[in-house]
Design a protein around this nucleic acid. Sequence first.
DNA 1: TTGTAGGCGTTATCAG
DNA 2: CTGATAACGCCTACAA
Lengths: 333, 333
Amino acid sequence: MPVTISDIAKAANVTKATVSYVINNKPGVSEETRQKILKIMKEMNYHPSTVARGLAGKSTEMLGLIIPDISDHFYVQVVRGVEETANLYNFTLNLCTTHALPEKEREMVDLFTTGRVDGIILMTYFLDLDYIVNLKKRKIPFVLIDSTFEDKSIYTVNVDNFEAGYKATEHLIRLGHKRIAFVGGPQSSNDSLLRFRGYRQALQDHGLSYSEDLVCQGDFKREGGYQAFLTLQRLQNKPTAVFAANDQMAIGILSAARSVGLQVPQDLSIIGCDDIEASSVVEPPLSTIKQPIEEMGKRATEIIFQLIYKEKPAQRRVVLKTSLVERSSCQAL
Amino acid sequence: MPVTISDIAKAANVTKATVSYVINNKPGVSEETRQKILKIMKEMNYHPSTVARGLAGKSTEMLGLIIPDISDHFYVQVVRGVEETANLYNFTLNLCTTHALPEKEREMVDLFTTGRVDGIILMTYFLDLDYIVNLKKRKIPFVLIDSTFEDKSIYTVNVDNFEAGYKATEHLIRLGHKRIAFVGGPQSSNDSLLRFRGYRQALQDHGLSYSEDLVCQGDFKREGGYQAFLTLQRLQNKPTAVFAANDQMAIGILSAARSVGLQVPQDLSIIGCDDIEASSVVEPPLSTIKQPIEEMGKRATEIIFQLIYKEKPAQRRVVLKTSLVERSSCQAL
DNA sequence: TTGTAGGCGTTATCAG
DNA sequence: CTGATAACGCCTACAA
């Protein structure tokens, strides 16, 4: 249906090969013919079929991106980073979601390894290390984002979640808090676990005792934070500060605190993690640990392109640092 | 590199054609051979190449989606609706952004019309009607979201922005407000224009006079709302309520009001438009007009599939209704 | 019921 | 410098 390379060849009175040469600007074509062909291509509004090109073994100019869920702002930010970087290379994104279903994860990976894309960025949580390592046999570059694997043979990009927990807790400690609660995410969350470890380590490094009472489990949602705080409030010895493993929960804690008549930050300091948009408009604005999420997408994409173009990436594991965003939800004791 | 149809054929002692038949479960293959082939495909973990299949004229199982910007929450929601619907059909998304650059828009459309995808959903703002109508010649289904065209020959999905403006204004009027300001988006925004028209119409229908003084231009951003409100404050006869053409600006107006010592909603009622996440956590929670953005993506995708599968969509123009979300930023006078 | 052969649009190889 | 020609993996008449 659309105009093909043969149409151009015919119009220019040459063969397809010659046209192909000028498309990929390879030598072996006289300047005269080259210009003529270029002109005709313009006139006929010709665009090489990426599909055919892909079949013939060349680049598809597409990157596969596998995320669990596009409703989650976290992944949206990753997508943003990937998209913008891919754009620089004139690549387009092939996006799919798994909804954190193991079979879907495998299905999507299989889909992408059939030559439909030139590289894959994956955020999967159920594929085991064996499966991932075996992906290398399929000869298509891939990078993992936010994965739990520490294997040295694969490329991964992560945020330093331990450091995030450490920083948040340390901030509270510096403000003089001694009874600091931790509200975690769901059991299954590795990120939450690492932040928790950072929290413990910070307590320990500053000579504060760790108490299980002060640790609550949430679900990364606002309501979970709300409930968790209510639980905390039933304690004899209440916390003066709380570190929530993400901002959504921190905001839930904020409303819970208000609902029981506490003032933030006068009566309670709160720090979150993520730096979502809502955190800056909430009252009081929420102090938080900002993660370079978009940057993760960017770095992963850069690695993919190095792999595609056969350059050797500097490192296999990149771990990005977080930063403290001080707003008004924390106060010195 | 990966296992191909020939590999399967060889292993099963049949020809590629036979394998192809069972892949597309067509008749003409004995149940016995079919089972045998199926089994071998499983064993060898075979997946037909979508690329080759696309070239041969079959479905690519991909939808092209063109948006201006993935940093904008509005488009993210559209993507979400599209993605989820496409998923039901086992389609994958080919996403690209134009950053609202005219050449990019054209480039992406051209890209997608070369057979790389089975259908296109586009949110472009610079391609003229002629160009769009001509797309039909390329024989690939497409649907426009949030477009300004009223042409009856193309498929479009929109939100009723006029109604949004009307509803917001009417809400304020019902609360007894008579001096209602309007803070619009950038000049180029058609959505903002339509909401403005709704605003005017509501005033008129309720016998209120329209005054140019009460209309300010913003930029759809928080800062723009902030500045716009400061301008409004310089008026002799100040407004008692303001309708912002989007929530970001409404939030800016909220801070501006606070900064000049006004209480919301006691001294000033504010209503926004969009219902972004921040609107529910801001203090006081913002009343707004909720748009079914995700629904737009969903509807557009459904139309695309009807087109792909040669069913006739019920209508060419679908216009979705908005709804009022009452929170605490508006008060009866 | 199965196999043969040609085509989809492009690239690559190898002569001329 | 240019032109045939054979892949690439799959689909679909048509023939056996």
